[in-house]
């Protein structure tokens, strides 16, 4: 059976079970709404454009934040890979910062920037930067010595060696870094938006919760999950796969 068919059957079964539990009526509808109500809420949100505005706003926060985090992460990664002292000092701190969950930065951001979009973007930047830094660092440190030797015998050195050999050789790690930075930023974005004053998917989610609108809560959770997996599987995993194949790090599929 093809994978696609298996997946469709799985989700159909899941929805049927959900509908069954709903029909049994053990819990009130305000706690477990039926799949049809949730679907209606999502469709209504798209028809009156409120969910569309939220998605657009969320992507605006995400893209600005992610772009900044990739630039900072790349530069920091190069610094750590090239300067030993920086790696031994700043590197330790970044490793520690990487283990701090993004939501921890929200209160700090609110005090610094208030309930503004800047707060959200700040949290997104923090969310993506450190994982990009660590991947870029590994990428540059792990360039196969044979590439460097070969390039040197061909008269390449200094900046030329760095730009023409070291940077391209580290692209596979950098791509993994971008994919992870996106995933971390996406999580950070939701944390930031839930404590914001909107607009954004996270804001609408917490707003719906405040007004006991359970079908909208579930609807938005589904939207967040779907967007997350679409971006990861359709965009990043494909790019990563292509790069690894070209770089000879994965067998041709």
């Amino acid at each position: 059976m093809p994978v696609v068919v298996k997946r469709i059957l799985f989700f159909v079964a899941l929805i049927l079970i959900w509908q069954g539990i709903f029909l049994l009526g053990i819990w009130p509808e305000s706690m477990i709404p039926g799949p049809l109500t949730v679907a209606e809420t999502i469709i209504a949100g798209f028809v009156d454009m409120t969910l569309v505005y939220d998605i657009v706003a969320s992507f605006r926060h995400l893209l600005i934040g992610l772009a900044v985090s990739l630039v900072i992460g790349t530069l920091l990664g190069v610094l750590l890979a090239k300067v030993k002292t920086a790696d031994e000092t700043l590197g330790t701190m970044i490793l520690a910062l990487q283990s701090v969950p993004s939501i921890v930065w929200v209160p700090l951001a609110i005090i610094w920037f208030g309930f503004t979009e800047a707060s959200i973007i700040f949290v997104v930047i923090i969310g993506g930067t450190f994982v990009m830094t660590m991947n870029m660092r590994i990428g540059i440190k792990n360039v196969a010595p044979i590439y460097l030797q070969a390039a040197r015998t061909m008269g390449s050195k200094g900046m030329d060696l760095f730009m023409k050999v070291v940077v391209p050789a580290s692209i596979p790690h950098a791509v993994t870094g971008v994919r992870l930075a996106w995933a971390f930023s996406w999580r950070a974005l939701m944390a930031g938006e839930m404590l914001s004053t909107g607009p954004g998917l996270g804001y609408t989610l917490s707003y719906a919760s405040d007004f006991n609108n359970m079908s909208l809560v579930i609807g938005i959770i589904i939207i967040i999950g779907v967007i997350g997996s679409i971006v990861d599987q359709l965009i990043f995993q494909r790019i990563e796969h292509k790069v690894l194949k070209r770089w000879g790090m994965e067998e041709a599929a």
Partner: peptide, 19 residues
Amino acid sequence: TEPGPDKSMVFQEPALFPW
């Protein structure tokens, strides 16, 4: 004293740049 265009080298691995 250093590698240069007056000599070229072939390694055991091809050492081609995959990109």
